[in-house]
Design a protein around this nucleic acid. Sequence first.
DNA 1: GTGAATGTTAACAG
DNA 2: CCTGTTAACATTCA
Length: 247
Amino acid sequence: MPEGPSIILFKRALEVFKGCKVLKASGVSKTIDPTQLQGKTLTGLRTFGKHLLLSFGPRFTLRVHFLMFGTFRFDDVRKAPIRLHLGFGHQQQLNFYTCSLQYIEEPLNHVYDWREDILSSKWDPASALQKLKEEPADRMVCDSLMDQDLFAGLGNIIKNEVLYRTKVHPESLVKSIPANKRKEIVHEVRTYAKQFLKWKEAGSLQKHWEAYMQTTCGRDGAKLIKEPTGKGERRSFWCPVCMKKYE
DNA sequence: GTGAATGTTAACAG
DNA sequence: CCTGTTAACATTCA
């Protein structure tokens, strides 16, 4: 479910546990031993792209990736297996479901380049532009946008909305897109990601979709095409009339 | 009722 | 060994 902006909202929701000690930790994870968290105090919360980072001191962080269907709950009513349970005390039970868990045992600044995170205050559009410039000649813009090493936190909704707004066909070769247009795309990534966050928070994200899950173009009334595109074969929506294919 | 999807990765095949 | 494909995760919505 979640793209970068949604992870920021997850983080905000979990900030109530900052400074709290994990009294009990359990769960069925193949990748981590939950008991290692027992007795540790949650010292900080951060996000990087689609990663939720819960730190227990400077050199011990739990990385949560929610994949497509992952979620968390403050109660225990679901049928799905609990991937990780954290008990912070009476009526302070936190459960994670269907997520990928990993421990990071070094400072986060060694692991993450915050300039890549489209929603970070350290986001660096110049660095993203440079990487776009170095993409292979046959790479489509739809694949470049979804590449988490270039645009951490960008998901399929943001991809579709950004391309629609900048009128660039998803199957355009990124190298063939003029430099000023590439710049416009990078700028729109940040702008739309921020709008996504604001609208998601207000519960009106879907209402503002102009391409994703839409059937007609709001600009010219043409029927939008819906097809998997690129190597990633992720679903794209585009207008055959007003969106230009650079090739 | 069915099928696809806001995502990634381990396991497997060649 | 490298590269590409598939399965897995499990819920929601059209």
